[in-house]
Design a protein around this nucleic acid. Structure first.
Length: 823
RNA sequence: GCCGAAGUGGCGGAAUGGUAGACGCGGCGGUCUCAAAAACCGUUGCCUUUUAUUGGGCGUGUCGGUUCGAAUCCGACCUUCGGCACCA
């Protein structure tokens, strides 16, 4: 039966993928050895959270980068492309609360399943280097880094208002609070609570983090980080409150517009500011108190809403603008944030829109101090924000405001009214989490010695198994009596352990170094290995990590460098953000029920097809939509390749030498090598695959119509299998072995193109008349410009368009086209 | 509101100053089959001309500009997506 023969000829992916995965595993084909005499290449994909089941998004993140790693490997690099698991985090704990299973068991079970799935992708991960962050061998080094930072003063403890979810009973990071002020997990309104918590002093590196000159990263990501850091340069200027006879004689404000200092008509203090109570006069105390109360009640949502009308109350007190001696009323308003600058703002309604709105509402003076010719009189409909000429500003009148900024700042510094200052929006990194499933913070509290770090030799502080992790508002670790009660390492008296755990971003801030010496026990990592492999050459992952994870990792690298552990400044030389894969025009999510499960498709069409399809959808950074019919198309192509290279060669191989066909074949081979190589270099997997498809289309056409000679056919086969190897690792290995070549195709050298085969005897010149395409001519490639022009003008098609027209000029673009401009 | 990216056939996309629509999906026609599926071959932007061969016009979100020539560069606007959002 012919049809069943045909079926039997179809690519038996199940058998073949299993066969090679097993063999690669047995042979340790993908083991990465150190100290190999090849240039190193560290290609890293962001490690996944072990949520249990991989969806197609994981494949979309991982298979293209695996293809890149394989490509680099064939190019002769010693490639490290490791994989691990970001194993601490809330979902494990939530699952534990919900289903009564211990987070460790839940996580390990998930990892096991994901490992199986990851292996089915046919990746080159060296599993001997796998890291799992919830293992004490890993998190011990989180604790170690923390202690080193503590020694250096980079880790400190302080009270801080934290986002608190009453339902989850925990602190939330800003990014866990939705735009509407609700908890991202349970939609409960988030409130503020003051807790004594641990911070890492990332702000110490703010200035260095702004320097992105060593990062070959997307501009977008660098910009987002720099906006996040939010540097602004200005002046801190004091206003006189000595007449209030307080301990504090001056009230400090920060401004970026010191040129508008003469336009100050009021001062605004944040409601939480300690000076508020002291400055409020007795007749205003009731109003101010109730305003502060309302402000504290109003949630983050309202405080942060830009649309919200500016409100505030008068304290009854005044301060003095020391530049002109004016008496300035002091207000309390919640549009001023205690956490930024000095928590006090000088109100310049003429030149700041927020101040303008506030002044309009409370009928305060609006005093113009910077002017341009378009402004008539003194009445403004909105704040004037642009540059101009100084007015109403004493001795500075007539200067440009840009010049006045400098001169006024100098004046203020001379008079010691204030000084130039820099402020950053970025805050220190709060790492305390009132959660169980994380790295215990290695600190002991002793009644007599105070805060005592756990001695290095006592690490790791192991997470106790017996903690109660129901959300009680207390950190779960405090329920483990064995854990909490300890002995002070300094004085041997009874002491208690810190019960908070660390933010999981700590784990991911240095995991890329642990892959280099995953089992190293004498230190966080083997320094020799860092010298050999670091930093990461190419990092890939989702853009959702553009700020937090990538910024924290950069901070860690700088801190580790200052601890003398590494010698470079940045963790990731190059960065590429892939897009998202969607389904049914929507993001995949369990609640929408549109999650595409890879296992199912791997069973139906094989891993190579799924890999190639994901890379073919479109440009990797733009993401794409999953489509079953698109997948079928890829399956068709993979099967076609299988059939082409399993054909009975005698039907089209001839022993007659056909120079013309050989020449054409070499042209196609070399053109394809160039295209695939250049596009892989640029992450353009889709067009790489398209050119490989064109290659197979061409082969098919030639098989159907002509015959190849044996030599060129071998060349075609070999080059094609080598080029498809990074994309479809299983099928290419099978084809390679069927051709009788030496195992493994993945140890072969990537083919190179030879420019001499790309030069053709004839070239096609496009002819345009007045810029419109009117035909083309084939010319021998050695023809010169004059001859080509002559040929073009003599062609019948062109003569037709030239009838009754005068030639004005002829434009010739070498080897491409001729454009006749006529009238 | 601010910052950033993107808008091209029925669909995913290709082409980054020189033949718009590569490659793939889908559609249509055919081969094979009792039939269907699969596979294979051909065809496929829209309008128009011709019995046909073929020829012509239009066409890359909108409007304008630069250029011999614009999907591509510049200006304004519209739409979509992503990020940030009282930061003084």
């Amino acid at each position: 039966m012919e049809s069943s023969d045909l079926l039997a000829d179809r690519y038996p992916y199940q058998k073949i993928e299993k066969k090679w995965q097993d063999k690669w595993f047995r042979d340790k084909l993908y083991r990465v050895n150190d100290k190999v005499n090849k240039p190193k290449w560290y290609e890293l994909t962001m490690y996944p959270y072990p949520s249990g089941d991989m969806h197609i998004g994981h494949w979309y993140a991982m298979t293209p980068s695996d293809t890149r790693a394989r490509f680099r490997r064939m190019q002769g690099y010693n490639v490290l492309h490791p994989m691990g698991f970001d194993a601490f985090g809330l979902p494990a704990e939530n699952a534990a609360i919900k289903h009564g299973i211990h987070p460790y068991q839940w996580t390990m079970k998930n990892i096991e399943n994901m490992r199986r799935q990851l292996k089915s992708m046919g990746t080159i991960y060296d599993w001997d280097r796998e890291i799992v962050t919830c293992n004490p061998e890993y998190y011990k080094w989180n604790q170690w880094i923390f202690l080193k930072m503590y020694e250096k003063g980079l880790a400190y403890r302080t009270f801080a208002p934290a986002n608190w979810c009453n339902s989850c009973n925990t602190v939330l990071a800003n990014e866990q609070v939705l735009d509407n002020g609700l908890c991202e997990r349970c939609d409960t309104e988030v409130v503020k609570r003051d807790l004594n918590q641990w911070f890492l002093q990332i702000t110490k590196y703010a200035e260095e983090l702004l320097d992105q000159s060593k990062n070959d990263w997307p501009e977008k990501v660098k910009l987002m980080q720099n906006n996040w850091i939010g540097k602004s340069e200005g002046v801190e200027i004091s206003f006189d409150i000595r007449h209030h006879l307080l301990d504090q004689e001056f009230i400090n404000t920060f401004t970026t517009r010191i040129d508008t200092i003469f336009g100050v008509t009021f001062i605004v203090i944040a409601p939480e500011h300690p000076l508020v109570n002291k400055l409020t006069t007795s007749d205003n105390i009731d109003v101010v108190q109730s305003y502060i109360y309302e402000a504290s009640k109003s949630s983050e949502i309202e405080r942060l809403s830009t649309d919200k009308e500016k409100t505030g109350v008068f304290t009854g007190s005044y301060c003095i603008n020391r530049l002109n001696g004016e008496n300035i009323p002091i207000f309390v308003a919640d549009y001023v944030l205690l956490s930024y600058g000095t928590g006090v703002v000088m109100g310049v309604p003429a030149h700041d829109q927020r101040d303008y709105d506030f002044a309009k509402k409370y009928d305060l003076d609006i005093k113009l101090v910077v002017k341009n010719s378009l402004i008539e009189g003194e009445n403004l409909d909105e704040a004037y924000l642009a540059d101009g000429i100084m007015v109403n500003s004493g001795e500075f009148d007539g200067l440009s405001n840009i010049e006045a900024k400098k001169q006024i700042a100098d004046y203020i510094e001379n008079k010691t009214y204030g000084k130039r200052a820099i402020n950053y929006k970025m805050r220190d990194w709060l790492i305390s989490r009132q959660r169980y499933w994380g790295t215990p913070i290695p600190i002991i509290y002793c009644d007599s010695c105070g805060i005592v770090p756990v001695p290095e030799e006592d690490l790791p502080v192991v997470l106790p198994e017996n903690a109660e992790f129901l959300p009680t508002g207390e950190s779960p670790l405090s329920t483990s009596i064995d854990f909490v009660n300890t002995i002070c390492p300094k004085c041997d008296s009874k002491a208690k352990r810190e019960t908070d755990t660390m933010d999981t971003f700590v784990d991911s801030s240095w995991y890329f170094f642990r892959y280099l010496s995953p089992n190293y026990s004498q230190g966080i990592f083997d320094k020799d290995k860092i010298l050999e492999w670091g930093p990461v050459d190419q990092y890939t992952g989702g853009a959702e990590h553009a700020v937090m994870h990538l910024l924290y990792a950069r901070f860690f690298v700088k801190a580790l460098r200052d601890l003398g552990l590494i010698e470079f400044d940045e963790p990731f030389k190059k960065l590429f953000n892939q897009g998202h894969i969607i389904s049914g025009s929507q993001k995949m999510s369990k609640s929408r029920g549109n999650v595409v499960s890879p296992d199912e498709y791997v069973n139906q069409v094989g891993s190579d097809v799924v890999r190639c399809y994901l890379m073919f959808i479109g440009p990797w950074d733009q993401g794409g939509e999953w489509s079953d019919s698109g997948l079928r198309g890829m399956s068709r192509w993979i099967n076609r390749i299988w059939e082409i290279f399993n054909k009975d060669i005698s039907v089209f191989i001839s022993n007659n030498k056909d120079d013309k066909l050989d020449k054409e074949s070499r042209y196609i081979i070399n053109k394809t090598i160039r295209k695939v190589t250049e596009d892989l270099e640029k992450f353009k997997f889709n067009t790489s695959l398209a050119s490989l498809m064109e290659f197979t289309n061409w082969i098919n056409e030639k098989i159907n119509t002509k015959s190849f000679n044996a030599g060129i056919w071998n060349e075609i086969k070999m080059n094609f299998i080598l080029m498809i190897a990074p994309f479809a690792p299983h099928m290419s290995e099978e084809l390679w072995s069927l051709q009788g070549y030496n195992y493994s195709v993945h140890d072969q050298k990537w083919p190179e193109w030879n420019i001499k085969y790309l030069e053709l005897d004839a070239k096609t010149i496009v002819i345009q008349v007045n810029g419109k395409f009117r035909g083309k001519i084939e010319v021998p490639s050695d023809l010169n410009e004059e001859e080509i022009k002559k040929m073009a003008l003599e062609s019948e098609r062109i003569k037709y368009y030239m009838l009754d027209k005068d030639i004005i000029k002829i434009i010739y673009i070498k080897d491409k086209l001729i454009n006749c401009v006529v009238k």
